[in-house]
Design a protein around this nucleic acid. Structure first.
Lengths: 162, 162
DNA sequence: AGCGAATCATTCGACGTCGAACTATCTCTC
DNA sequence: GAGAGATAGTTCGACGTCGAATGATTCGCT
């Protein structure tokens, strides 16, 4: 079975047979697959009247099970702290999170989940994960494990130390 | 060996043991890994005085080995046609591509690589692929093949038909 | 204690992308 | 062959993000 990236690789092979097709293929598929997954995830949340970035922030707070500072949130969600200020503003306006003072350091603050925010995450996370599973449906249990093993290795490599 | 996504999964497991960790892990790693790869690729091109999007467009033209319409380019690069107009403008301003009339359809046009554009792609693609290989260095040949197999399956699934 | 460096969140300006509207051209049908 | 609808690329307005600058507070060193 071939995929669209194979076509892409064939084109390069015809012109520059010196290139490392295995590497190009892996990275190419990674990027393409992520775009497709992103789109599908976005579609799911849109159907549930939510945006992807809202879930990212709320879910990070939920799974951490404690208030987080904007800095911690930014690191988890992988956006700039400027973007986070904006996101917190909008979530707070809808009363899904609240800003609270952090005792002992007035530079910083704690972002907490409100009850409404927590209810919203809890009610969407299940369907979201089901949707993720559905996207992997073509992989049997063994393949899925193998995929996780390979990706884990790469994540570790690129995250540097750890 | 564990990675940062394992921590993330542990947090969910502690609170919601009903969730499908295998699926969350795979998708989570996919997204995280792509971010890391993106950053590294960006770093490489920045070092060579180039931006990622420039390479994307030029490389698509190069490997196609023929003039492409903006519509074809947009599909390959996965951005809107509006974004493509902007990119072509900027590449044309630097004389890396040229717009030419397409015979028989005056609505459309052909984007062609100039000699300078072609030289630029050819001189950077090699190092770029070497860099990609370097990111996969932890995987032996067999693992790399396996990764491509798994990703190919998923790309095919999510691309629908084909 | 006190002063400079470091750290934190926010604000600001610039930039790239998107979807929608727009113009021009082509195609299909009667 | 003429008109309706489809299709191509571009323009426009809105939006979210980023890096840099800002203001407030804390830490480290002597």
């Amino acid at each position: 079975m071939r995929d669209s990236v194979d076509d892409f690789l064939d084109q390069w092979a015809a012109l520059r047979s010196d290139l490392d097709l295995e590497a190009m293929g892996a990275v190419g598929r990674l990027l393409r697959l992520t775009r497709l997954v992103d789109k599908e995830v976005g579609r799911y949340f849109a159907e549930h009247g939510m945006e992807r970035w809202e879930f990212d922030v709320l879910a990070t707070l939920r799974r951490s099970d404690r208030p987080l500072t904007p800095k911690e949130l930014a690191a988890n969600v992988m956006v700039s702290s400027a973007a986070l200020t904006n996101r917190i503003d909008r979530l707070a306006a809808r009363s899904l999170v609240a800003r609270e003072a952090v005792p002992g350091d007035r530079r910083s603050l704690h972002v907490t989940l409100t009850d409404a925010g927590r209810r919203l995450v809890d009610s969407t996370v299940e369907g979201h994960v089901r949707n993720e599973r559905r996207m992997l449906a073509e992989l049997d249990a063994e393949d899925c494990e193998e995929l996780n093993r390979l990706l884990r290795t790469l994540v570790n490599t690129l995250e540097g130390g750890r």
